[in-house]
């Protein structure tokens, strides 16, 4: 555990492309990964985050600062998250969900996951494949077998248009 110094601490985070970021410890410890490093006393110098690039880390830090500035009001936090994610494209969301997973930030992880799920919701298999560029590697026989096994999931869904 780090010794209690009593002064507000700023941490320096380093992305995997060697960008350095300063962030208040109080905001950064939203990440359990960073919090553990702080508690283990490894936060004295620069904290290297090997799995996050500078662009994503900048975005995550914006989120950390924004959300930690909101007092304990779940409604307000939710609307901040919604707004924060509203203009992000899927590439960015994918980077963020990986970063959130690595940094162990469950609130960001859940918000981004929900946002991605929202895109898939109520869409046909063909639409989801095209939207996300998912390559269908089933043979026609295999696909028919999987569809048969999951026939119940197609009840009430409009006919797929990709066949």
């Amino acid at each position: 555990m780090a010794a209690e110094t009593g002064t507000p601490t700023t941490l320096t985070l380093k992305s995997n492309d060697d960008e350095l970021f300063s962030v208040a410890e109080s905001a950064a410890i939203l990440s359990v990964t960073i919090r553990n490093m702080v508690e283990d006393g490894c936060a004295g110098g620069v904290i290297p985050l090997d799995n996050v690039d500078g662009k994503t880390l900048a975005s995550v830090i914006t989120y950390m600062n924004g959300i930690s500035a909101i007092p304990a009001d779940e409604e307000k936090k939710k609307s901040y998250r919604d707004k924060f994610l509203s203009d992000k494209d899927f590439e960015t969301l994918a980077d963020m969900v990986l970063a959130a997973n690595y940094l162990n930030m469950s609130c960001l992880m859940d918000a981004v996951s929900a946002k991605i799920a929202q895109v898939m919701e109520k869409k046909s298999v063909g639409w989801v494949r095209r939207k996300f560029g998912i390559e269908n590697d089933y043979t026609p026989e295999e696909e028919a077998a999987v569809k048969e096994e999951h026939k119940w999931t197609f009840e009430g869904v409009e006919t797929d248009d990709d066949n």
Binding site: S113, Q118, V125, I134, E135, D137, V146, T153
Partner: peptide, 17 residues
């Protein structure tokens, strides 16, 4: 991500690939 879908929709993703 799937946990934010309904069970039916989550199961339907099996058909993607």
């Amino acid at each position: 991500i799937l946990s934010f879908l309904s069970m039916k929709e989550a199961a339907r993703t099996s058909v993607l690939s």
